[in-house]
Nucleic acid binder design. Structure first.
Length: 290
DNA sequence: GACTCGTGGGC
DNA sequence: TGCCCAAGAGT
């Protein structure tokens, strides 16, 4: 095992947080749901919603038997509600094509809606112990610093990122799983984007960025998020909140009252209809998808 | 590859 | 206070 992998695995054994999806007996379905919820969403906001979700829908079959509308309602304000829709669709696919089981094969997972390169590998590795590189934004930052000697990871380059992780990944599947999880944990809690705690880092003596004297990053930077205030995303969020709260179709006048700019409002509504997050028309009103 | 897609807590 | 961005995916 490489020195970096060995150090991360040893550190993780001591410092892993006690998170629900790390408990013994947590099901592959639970891990899959947690990974979808954790996409672009902080751990602290996911935990309570995850536990409610799994209590209500303890299996893919259970969710598949309910409506997309209920999934979107239960998603509540976790954000990016398309994830709820896709998770429901994934449950239907698992119910119909995988005997109600979460597939353990990376390619089968990739074929499910809402599951991309990160999530497919995370589920395979953490739910089934498959030896495969798992690379999220935290791991990318750890590798950029410790290995490449750069302060930031820059834009994601999936193939190269996976190859970089693969180069360090222990051959033993159990160690590989610990390294995958440990690298993410290290990036979240120690090797953070701002104010990294290098004095507490198990890789300090191996870190190329530290050895080089913490040079300022000069490469291409990751794209910055567009302003939220006044955006279509804000308008979509307002409309979705109204749809979630209502058991009957929301009249067009109510939608109109949510945002003054008609052009932007109609654009947001049209995008929700196109996404399948809303159904309806001006006469019947609008509702979540059945 | 660039862009879009929610929400809310931290600094 | 206002800006940052968080276990990404799809187009």
């Amino acid at each position: 095992m490489s020195g970096i992998a060995r150090s991360v695995v040893a550190w993780f054994a001591e410092h892993a947080r006690d998170l629900p999806w790390r408990r013994a007996g947590f099901t592959p379905w639970g891990i899959l749901v947690s990974e979808i919820m954790l996409q672009q969403t902080p751990v602290a906001r996911v935990i309570p919603r995850l536990e409610q979700w799994l209590a209500r829908w303890p299996s893919p079959d259970a969710l598949a038997a309910d409506s997309p509308a209920e999934a979107v309602r239960a998603w509540d304000r976790l954000g990016y509600p398309r994830r709820a829709l896709r998770l429901h669709a994934a449950a239907v696919a698992m119910s119909e094509q995988h005997g109600g089981q979460v597939p353990r094969d990376v390619d089968a997972l990739l074929a499910l809606p809402g599951i991309g390169e990160y999530t497919a590998r995370a589920v395979a590795a953490f739910a089934f112990g498959v030896r495969t590189p798992v690379v999220d934004v935290n791991t990318r930052r750890v590798l950029a610093r410790a290995v490449a000697g750069q302060g930031e990871a820059g834009p994601a380059r999936t193939r190269a990122d996976l190859a970089a992780m693969e180069a360090l990944l222990p051959s033993d599947p159990a160690d590989a799983q610990r390294f995958n999880a440990g690298a993410m944990e290290l990036g979240q809690t120690v090797c953070t984007a701002r104010n990294p705690r290098c004095e507490s880092c198990p890789l300090a003596r191996l870190c190329a960025w530290r050895a080089a004297g913490y040079p300022e990053y000069d490469g291409p930077s990751a794209p910055r998020q567009a302003r939220f205030e006044g955006s279509d995303r804000q308008v979509r969020g307002l409309i979705m909140r109204e749809l979630r709260q209502s058991d009957t179709p929301v009249p067009a006048e109510v939608v109109e009252s949510l945002w003054p700019d008609a052009v932007q409002r109609e654009r947001a509504l049209a995008s929700l209809l196109a996404d399948g997050l809303a159904l309806g028309d001006p006469r019947a009103g609008y509702a979540l998808p059945d």
